[in-house]
Design a binder for these strands. Structure first.
Lengths: 202, 202
DNA sequence: GTCTATATTTGGATAGAC
DNA sequence: GTCTATCCAAATATAGAC
């Protein structure tokens, strides 16, 4: 069973392990408050050892974000859902996220931190939101063309609102998990906004 | 016209000035990445000078958050709106916020940063969200009793969603102001959720 | 590829003079 | 109330041995 891993079959093992731990650490502490020393220690390396694989701390952050992108794309894999199916998929994602606190924490902490001056992830999040917006708008347009969408006015605004609810719920959920049901609330907002129930889960 | 300022008529001048500058700095850099040195310099003091007024950096952050609370309460002043009037007030706040980037930045950055381990503002934001939730739920209950509210199911979920949209929109707006109209999007979500238009602006 | 050692900077906080 | 001086800890990054 040949692996499709492109660059190095075994030399990248350590690198991936460092990335995994860096992800956890950035999620737990934020970027600025996380230290290479902690990441190194938890990786069973020294600080210099980590910096052999990633020349700078910002480079390490970039690596983490690229890794996340890759696994997100892999997760979709078999052709992404279209129209209302994508909105359904967003709700499913919210549900799955309730079992993946680390990921939620990573994105919540870093996205907000990225709006500070000179933050290395600023461009990443700017273009990420642009991508998310485009994706949701496209889905809404597809639904509208298929006649499945009563609300056809100002789709970009609709998309912004849907993305915003999901983000905002995450902050509340991280601070007080018992107080928030991310999936239900997301479903409710989307349903209310588009004026029609979502298709059943795949 | 006698001032109602309680503790010191003139000695607190410097203290307030430091708080103002600290607020800006925390908003721009986040808590961890802001330094007392920078706050001191911008205040025209040395680091030790600042620490004379606030014994620790965390104490300074607490001071900033208390100050904001006080001015928020002052802003409401003449009896807070009830029922749907409060939801209208939320939309108005979103509109005003588009002219107060500093405040938006402060809350967005700090609330997300507060979910990290051992953050000094964690309790503050936990109880702040609890307070916001209670406030919105109460308003929804009032509206329901007055027969102004078609959607009466699961009001806490409704409240969470409304708060979440507002927060989420702020992140997007800070990264790309032209891409988001916070007030319009907030209005649209609230209207869709409660199933009835909001009363006209006061 | 990983380590030790170190350079360099910067952080928060304290002591004591003025 | 503010400063200077200082302490101590921690941070990122580099050089060079193994």
């Amino acid at each position: 069973m040949p692996k499709a891993a492109p660059p190095r079959p075994v030399g990248a093992r350590r690198r991936d392990e460092i990335l995994r731990i860096a992800m956890e650490t950035f999620a737990t502490r934020g970027y600025h408050n996380a230290s290479l020393a902690e990441i190194a220690e938890r990786s069973g390396l020294t600080q210099a050892g980590v910096l052999h694989h990633f020349r700078t701390k910002a480079g390490l952050l970039t690596g983490v974000l690229e890794l996340r992108d890759k696994s997100d794309i892999d997760a979709l894999g078999d052709g992404r859902p279209r129209g209302l199916g994508l909105l359904r998929h967003l709700v499913d994602t919210a549900r799955r996220n309730a079992e993946r606190e680390g990921i939620v924490r990573l994105y919540t902490v870093l996205s907000a931190e990225s709006v500070t001056e000179g933050h290395p992830a600023q461009e990443y999040f700017r273009s990420r939101y642009q991508g998310l917006r485009t994706m949701v708008i496209t889905a809404l347009e597809e639904a509208a063309e298929a006649g499945e969408l009563p609300a056809t006015r100002d789709l970009p605004e609709l998309a912004n609102a849907i993305i915003a609810v999901m983000d905002g719920l995450q902050v509340q959920w991280l601070l007080d998990p018992a107080a928030v049901d991310m999936a239900r609330a997301t479903d409710r907002v989307i349903t209310a906004l588009i004026g029609v129930p979502l298709p059943p889960e795949e």
